[in-house]
Every structure is written in C-alpha cells, then in structure tokens.
C-alpha cells in the first residue's frame, strides 16, 4: 500500500494530516510529521501536498552512505534509525521534498505509508492505494 494525493485542489490547508502523522508517533506538534502542506505562494492559489511517492528505485536510499535507508517491498523506503548518521543526503536527494527533517533529533522523517493521515483528511485529498494508478 502506498499513500497518494488524489487532488490538491480539494485541499483547504488545514494541515490535519500533518498533525495526525505526529500523533501516530505519539507526539504533538509537527517535528516528526512525514508529510507537508504549504501554499503555492499565497493561500488563494491553493496548496502543495507533499507526500512520499514510494518510488520504485528511490534516490534517497541510493544516496544513503550507511544503508540506513533501504528500499521497501512495494515501493518507498525503510529507515533503520540506528544506522542513520543524520548527514541529510537523503533529504537533498528527494526532489519533491518528501524526506522531512526532524530538527530535534537531527534525523530524517520517512513516511511508512500507514494511511493514518488519510483518516484525518476532511476532504478526500489523500488516499491509500494498492498499486500506483497511472492516469491516462
């Protein structure tokens, strides 16, 4: 299963999904959130909803010098936090900015595609899908 963005135009920018992600990790606030919602230069123009796309051959894992990030079955990556040295190369390698950074722990935050955030999107912006649906 992987997390997907259905339609960013439905997003009202409430960021409930970001808070849900933190809560799943037993935290409040946003330090550990693994997805992001921000305006496209002014809220009147709508929002970017940034989630891990679960790439088949993930650049973040390829660049990791310690094998802390490894490809996960079905797409995306797994993080072995014990191996991570916090170098930040994974973050730079993700061109959509979906490797988030926890400044308090100085470690990357990696989406595990659990879908908890989907339950807290009031307008159906997010969904979990089995395989990537390619729109024709």
């Amino acid at each position: 299963m992987r997390l997907a963005v259905v339609d960013t135009e439905r997003c009202i920018g409430c960021q409930s999904c970001m808070f849900a992600c933190s809560r799943r990790q037993q935290e409040g606030g946003l330090a550990s959130s693994c997805l992001g919602v921000k305006s496209i230069g002014g809220m009147e123009r709508g929002f970017m909803v940034i989630v891990c796309r679960a790439c088949d051959n993930p650049p973040c894992a390829k660049i990791c010098p310690t094998n802390a990030l490894t490809p996960r079955d079905g797409g995306g990556v797994k993080l072995d936090i014990a191996k991570c040295i916090g170098c930040g190369r994974c973050k730079d390698a993700c061109i959509i900015g979906a490797v988030f950074w926890n400044d308090e722990r100085d470690k990357p935050m990696i989406c595990i595609h659990c879908g908890y955030c989907v339950k807290f999107c009031p307008h159906g912006v997010l969904k979990l899908e089995k395989t990537r649906e390619v729109k024709q």
């Binding site: 920018g13 409430c14 960021q15 409930s16 709508g46």
Partner: peptide, 13 residues
C-alpha cells in the same frame, strides 16, 4: 466562490 480555506489545525475551512 473560488476556494475555501482553513486555519492551521482546523478541519472546518
């Protein structure tokens, strides 16, 4: 009506 928006951490919009 062109768009509805929400404050941070409010699902109402």
């Amino acid at each position: 009506l062109g768009r509805r928006l929400a404050c941070s951490h409010c699902p109402i919009g």
